[in-house]
């Protein structure tokens, strides 16, 4: 009887510890992403999603603030894709397409992404739908 009590107490404690560790890992992950808070909340709310062409897209009609966020992000990402494309001797579009494959894979459950047919999907717990040309 006593032994069981101790066991259950230990079980609760370990659950709390697991919870704390889990939360700090999540916080750490969010910190490591280093996203602007406005951008992060746009992702979380599903206002923006990852497109197959490697850039962000506004999901449906969005506020001017969201649209400007998408435009600015386009220019920033294009710089990164252009640099990699030049280093690899491939077109910017090709580099961006590879980026799209990766970006869609990197989405977390609840975030939006574009399926190969062009429609917006919400990422579930399983693997996302990727273009057949993704490596």
């Amino acid at each position: 009887m006593k032994h069981t009590e101790i066991k259950s107490k230990f079980g609760l404690k370990s659950k709390i510890i697991t919870g704390i560790v889990g939360l700090s890992v999540l916080a750490g992950a969010a910190y490591a992403q280093g996203r602007d808070p406005a951008y992060q909340s746009a992702r979380d709310s599903g206002a923006v999603g990852e497109k197959t062409d490697g850039y962000l897209g506004a999901v449906g009609n969005q506020s001017p603030a969201i649209n400007s966020l998408v435009r600015k992000n386009y220019l920033l990402r294009k710089q990164v894709y252009t640099k990699t494309a030049q280093a690899q001797g491939i077109s910017v579009e090709r580099a961006a397409f590879f980026g799209g494959c990766k970006n869609i894979q990197r989405t977390v459950p609840g975030e939006k992404y574009q399926a190969p047919d062009g429609s917006w999907k919400t990422r579930g717990s399983g693997a996302p739908e990727l273009d057949a040309s993704c490596p």
Partner: peptide, 15 residues
């Protein structure tokens, strides 16, 4: 090529 793009994404994770 895809790996090079992935590395660039990780380095610029903020955007």
């Amino acid at each position: 090529q895809a790996k090079a793009v992935e590395e660039a994404i990780e380095e610029n994770a903020g955007i």
